[in-house]
């Protein structure tokens, strides 16, 4: 795996157009190596799920080529399916079966003996805090538990390349931690893990590299650290203000796309992504004062992937004239 000379996932000019109006992805070209967790990041509709669906042979691309573990996306379509593990966005489980029945079916499909299957299933159920649910019908599990079952199914297969689409959707913080740890462990064993997600903090915590998509196109692809360095300087200034109504900051033209959040009675937080917090704070305080807002707190947060994400996404919104 890690010693293979070809990348785990490779694509060139990959385009998926659903129809004349709807574009999924356009001209994507990148290589994803083994031994890393690579995040597919981007706002809603950026093409993350389409990318996952095309690369897992679930849908056919309109044009372009791709290779999975050196297998050609078109010629070896069926063979590719044997080297992949997929945790889809949907709760793709057998609802009518018990957790153990469902996992046993898949463990047998992966060629495991009954003893081996049962011991591995017990181990993973324990790791994912589901050991008491082995004989419960999946129908009776919560959404988060169902998602964990899906992930266990993928871990049982132990494939060299894993695609996970929004793997932490509906999970509690402990569940998120367990899932992210298991993805990291897979990568440390030389697997290629591709994680499509909107949860930026989770991508930052779990991923080595990030592919940022915007409107179906590749905006950037780099390591998380380089991302932070490249788009460095982005900081978030948050003003906590007192106001009877939603603060009107539309006329503060220099600072695009503030996030406004009501945090209590007459209390609001207005957050701005800025290049230079030190220079921006006096000007923002002045603008707030001139708007008749009473400032109760000013805070500055250092650069994070989330800030970069918000900033890159806001470029898209301003390009769209939103």
């Amino acid at each position: 795996m890690a010693t293979d000379f070809h990348p785990a996932v490779s694509c060139r000019d990959l385009t998926k157009r659903y129809n004349a109006e709807v574009l999924g992805i356009e001209d994507l070209s990148f290589d994803i190596p083994y031994g890393k967790v690579t995040g597919l990041l981007g706002p809603n509709g950026a093409g993350k799920s389409t990318t996952v669906n095309v690369l897992t042979t679930a849908i056919r691309p309109t044009s372009g080529e791709f290779w999975i573990a050196g297998l050609h996306g078109k010629r070896d379509r069926l063979k590719i399916r044997n080297v992949l593990g997929i945790v889809s966005q949907d709760f793709a489980v057998d609802w009518a079966l018990t957790v153990r029945q469902h996992l046993n079916v898949f463990a047998s499909l992966y060629g495991k003996s009954a003893d081996q299957a049962n011991s591995e299933i017990d181990m993973w159920l324990n790791a994912f805090d589901l050991s008491g649910k082995a004989d419960t019908k999946i129908l009776q599990l919560s959404g988060g538990q169902g998602r964990r079952v899906q992930l266990i199914r993928c871990l049982l297969a132990d494939p060299p390349i894993v695609f996970v689409d929004e793997p932490t959707l509906g999970l509690d913080p402990k569940g998120v931690q367990v899932v992210l740890n298991s993805l990291r462990q897979m990568a440390s064993r030389g697997k290629c893990v591709v994680m499509a997600s909107n949860a930026v903090e989770e991508v930052e915590a779990a991923c080595d590299d990030v592919i940022f998509l915007r409107r179906g196109r590749l905006l950037d692809y780099d390591s998380v650290q380089h991302f932070l360095d490249r788009y460095g300087g982005l900081e978030v200034v948050t003003l906590t203000v007192v106001s009877d109504t939603v603060p009107d900051v539309m006329w503060w033209g220099t600072y695009l796309d503030p996030e406004i959040e009501e945090i209590g009675p007459r209390m609001w937080q207005i957050s701005f992504s800025v290049d230079d917090a030190r220079g921006a704070v006096p000007s923002l305080v002045d603008l707030a004062f001139r708007s008749g807002l009473t400032i109760s707190d000013v805070s500055v947060k250092s650069k994070t992937l989330k800030n970069i994400y918000l900033n890159l996404s806001s470029i898209e919104r301003s390009e769209n004239g939103e």
Binding site: R81, N82, L84, V93, L109, A157
Partner: peptide, 14 residues
């Protein structure tokens, strides 16, 4: 619709 078709056909089922 619920993804089980995909799950099965990417689990070695022909």
């Amino acid at each position: 619709r619920h993804g089980m078709f995909q799950a099965l056909l990417t689990s070695g089922v022909d």
